[in-house]
Design a protein around this nucleic acid. Structure first.
Lengths: 375, 375
DNA sequence: ACGGCCGGTGAGAACGTTCTCTCACTCCGC
DNA sequence: GCGGAGTGAGAGAACGTTCTCACCGGCCGT
C-alpha cells in the first residue's frame, strides 16, 4: 500500500472528507464520530476512528474556530516578558489557560502605547477570546474599550484604571509603600529617600508642593505613582523630612540609569539615611549604587526594595523587601478572564492581592538620628 | 443615526460583506480594496475604505488563515517560562516574530515529555507555521517528526539531537564546562566538585567507571550531560581527582533540592576545594549552601556557576560564571525558523553560539592544596 | 394496519476571507 | 467604424469544519 506514513514534507493534511472517504461514510457522519457531537452508531464510530488513525488525521483548529467562533486562544500583553515579574505572571496565566484547554498568545509592549495598541489589534483580529493586559496607559484605553465592544473580555494586570469598566488584579501599591516607608521611619530614620520608576521628565511635574507645604503626587493609578503616594503619606504622617531632593526618578527597565540616579541620591550633600525603591529594577540599581559607593548596609544606609526576587536573599545583607506574588496575580487574572469568557457579567471587580513586608537585614535603627519627635 | 459606534457588547463584527453593502460595491471589490490585492479604481477604493472606517471593520484573521493557509503564528515550547533562561529566549523570539508580523503562542512543558507532545499537537492543530522547541527528550522525537512531515519547520533550542533532521541553536556545552573546570584546575585545585542538573535517579547510572578506571558519561546530547562530559574531560586531562563522591545530581527547577545536594557535596569528609554548577538553579543552590555552611568564598571553596544572571554581580563575592546569551539564542532560533518558513530547504544546520567564561572573584588559587603533580 | 416518533444518516449550507473566472466597458489602432 | 487589447467589477467557488434540515427505516401505540 503506497499511501500511508510516507515522509513527503508539506503533504496535505488529511481532512474529515478524506477520513469519510476512507471509512466509506459521509462527511457528516465522519464529523460526528470525530467531533463527539450528534449521534453515531457505535460500529460506524469505531470504523471512522480507525480510518482517522490510519490517515493520521487531526482536526484543523482554524477551520473549527471559523465555524464555531471560538479560538481557544487568549492574549497576554505585558511590557517585557524577560522581566521576572511578567515572566512569572505569564507562567500563572499559562497554567490556568492549560487547565481550560486554551493557549496564550504573547505580545511585548515595551511600555509603549502604540505598540500595545497594535498588539491588541492583532490579537482581536486573531479572534482571541479574552486578553490579559498590563496596560501602558491608564487614561488612553480606547483600544481596550474596542475589545470590550467586540465582546472580548479584558482583565487588567498590575494596573487599575477607572477609565475602563474592566476587572483588574492588582496589589495595594499605596499601602505597600506606606508600610515599607513606615517601617523605616519606625526605625528612627528621618531622611528617607525614594527611587521611583517614572519617566524622569515626568517625575518633577508629578510631585508638587501644596499650599499647606506638603508634597503631593498627581496622576492616575499607576503602580509607581501609587507607591510614591504611599511614600509621601508615610513621610507626612510621621512628620519626617519631605523634600524633593530625597526623590529620584528613573525610566522603566533601565538598570544602568537606575544605578546612576541612585548614586546621585546617595551622594548628595545631606544624603538620606534610608531609601525605598519602588520596583525590582530600581531595587537592583539602588543596591549596586550603595555597593559601588562603599556604603555599609544597613549601618550607613538602610534599604527597602520592591519584589522578592530570589537574589534578594543571596546578597549580603539579605534585603528587606515588599513581596508580591506575580504568579498568583497571573493566575487570578486568568481565572477571572475565563469566568468572563464563560459569560459571567457581574460588574467589574478589582481584585487586590496581598503584599508582605519581608524584613531582613538591610534595614536597621538609625543610630545618630533625631530622636522621635516629642509630643 | 442609530447605527454607528454603539457599545452593545458582543456586537457582531462587521465583515467584508457589510463593508461592501455600506459602500455600495460587491464583496469582491470590497475585499480587493481592503486587502490590497487585485486592481480597484481609486475612487472606489477610497469609498470602501471610508465605509470600513465608519463601520469599524477589521479583518478576521481566522477566516483569512483558513483561506490562505498561513496563520502568521509560530509556537514556542519550553520547560518553564518563569525560568530566566526561557523568558529571555522567548523575548528574543518575540522580537524577531514581531519584525516578521508573526505572533508566538507559548506552551510550558515542565520538562515532561507527554506535556510537550500534547503542546506540539495543539500547536499543529492550530496551524502554526513553525515551532521553536527546547525538547525534553533527544531520543523520543516522533511528535517533532510529525510536525516536519506536515511541512511545519522545527528549530531546536538549547538541545541538539541527531535523531531529528532539524536546525538547532545551541552552545558548546562540553567546551564551556571544560573551560570552566580547566580554569579551576589551572588555579591549583585537585578536588573539583560537580553539581549537575540531572534526575538523581538517573545520574548515578549515567556516570560509570570504564575499564581504564576513568569516569565516563553515557547518554544523548542534553546540555547537562554534555557539561558533565566536559567536566570529566577536564578532570581527566589534568589528572585531577576523579571520584563519584565529587558529583551530586539534582532535578531541574528545584532550588531547595539543589541546595541540599550542594550541602551534601560541601560537607563530606573530604570536601572539594572548588565546585562547578551546571546551570543557574544549581548555581544558586551552590552559593546558598556555601553561605549557610559558613564557607568563605573563594578562601574555603571556589565556585563557578552557569548562566550570567544579574544577581551574580550583586552577591559578594561576584561569581565567576559561564555566560551564554539566551536572548541571542532565541533570536537566532526564530531567525532560522523564518528562513525555513520562507522555503529555505538547505540541510539542517547546527548553530553554535559562543559562551564566555567570566572570571570574577569567586575563584582563587588553591592555597594549601596538593602541589601540581610532578612529572 | 397505519400514523407518528425516534435513532441514525446524508446532503448541503454556513462561517469570512481570498481568488479565479467571466464579462462589460473603454480606448486605441487600423 | 470595427476588432482587439486592457481595465476593472461582479458572481461564485474554495478552504475544513460544524450544524441544520430532510429523509429513511423501524418501532410503538392505538
Amino acid at each position: 500500500m503506497p499511501a500511508g506514513t510516507g515522509a513527503a514534507p508539506g503533504r496535505r493534511r488529511p481532512t474529515v472528507a478524506d477520513v469519510a472517504r476512507e471509512a466509506g461514510v459521509s462527511v457528516a457522519t465522519a464529523g460526528r464520530a470525530l467531533g463527539n457531537y450528534g449521534r453515531v452508531r457505535d460500529d460506524l464510530r469505531e470504523q471512522v476512528q480507525a480510518a482517522a488513525q490510519r490517515l493520521g488525521y487531526s482536526p484543523n483548529a482554524v477551520a473549527r474556530s471559523m465555524r464555531s467562533g471560538g479560538t481557544r486562544s487568549i492574549g497576554f500583553v505585558g511590557a517585557d516578558i524577560s522581566n521576572p515579574y511578567f515572566a512569572t505572571a505569564m507562567r500563572g496565566i499559562c497554567d490556568v489557560a492549560r487547565e481550560q484547554g486554551y493557549e496564550p498568545i504573547l505580545a511585548n509592549s515595551d511600555d509603549r502605547l502604540e505598540v500595545e495598541r497594535a498588539a491588541v489589534s492583532v490579537l482581536l483580529d486573531k479572534q482571541v477570546e479574552g486578553i490579559v493586559v498590563a496596560p501602558t496607559s491608564v487614561t488612553d484605553v480606547a483600544h481596550l474599550e474596542r475589545a470590550k465592544e467586540l465582546g472580548v473580555p479584558i482583565v487588567l494586570l498590575d494596573r487599575h484604571t477607572g477609565a475602563l469598566e474592566a476587572d483588574s488584579v492588582v496589589i495595594d501599591n499605596e499601602a505597600a509603600a506606606y508600610q515599607a516607608v513606615a517601617h523605616l521611619l519606625g526605625l528612627g530614620h528621618r531622611r528617607v529617600g525614594l527611587l521611583a520608576c517614572v519617566d524622569p521628565a515626568e517625575g518633577p511635574e508629578l510631585v508638587t508642593r501644596t499650599g499647606t507645604g506638603r508634597l503631593s503626587v498627581r496622576g492616575a493609578a499607576r503602580p509607581s505613582i501609587d507607591r510614591i503616594r504611599g511614600y509621601l503619606a508615610a513621610v507626612d504622617d510621621h512628620r519626617a523630612t519631605s523634600s524633593a531632593e530625597l526623590i529620584q526618578y528613573t525610566p522603566l527597565s533601565d538598570a544602568a540609569q537606575a544605578q546612576r540616579r541612585a548614586e546621585a541620591l546617595l551622594t548628595q550633600p545631606q544624603p538620606p539615611t534610608a531609601v525605598f525603591a519602588t520596583d525590582n529594577v530600581t531595587t537592583q540599581g539602588l543596591f549596586m549604587a550603595a555597593r559601588r559607593r562603599g556604603l555599609a548596609i544597613p549601618e550607613d544606609v538602610s534599604l527597602v526594595g520592591f519584589d522578592d526576587l530570589d537574589w534578594t536573599t543571596l546578597v549580603d545583607p539579605p534585603l528587606t523587601v515588599v513581596a508580591q506574588s506575580p504568579l498568583d496575580m497571573g493566575r487570578a487574572a486568568a481565572a477571572r478572564l475565563f469566568e468572563r469568557i464563560k459569560g459571567d457579567d457581574r460588574p467589574a471587580e478589582r481584585i487586590v492581592l496581598p503584599t508582605e513586608l519581608v524584613v531582613r537585614s538591610s534595614t536597621a535603627e538609625h543610630s545618630h538620628g533625631v530622636r522621635a519627635h516629642s509630643g
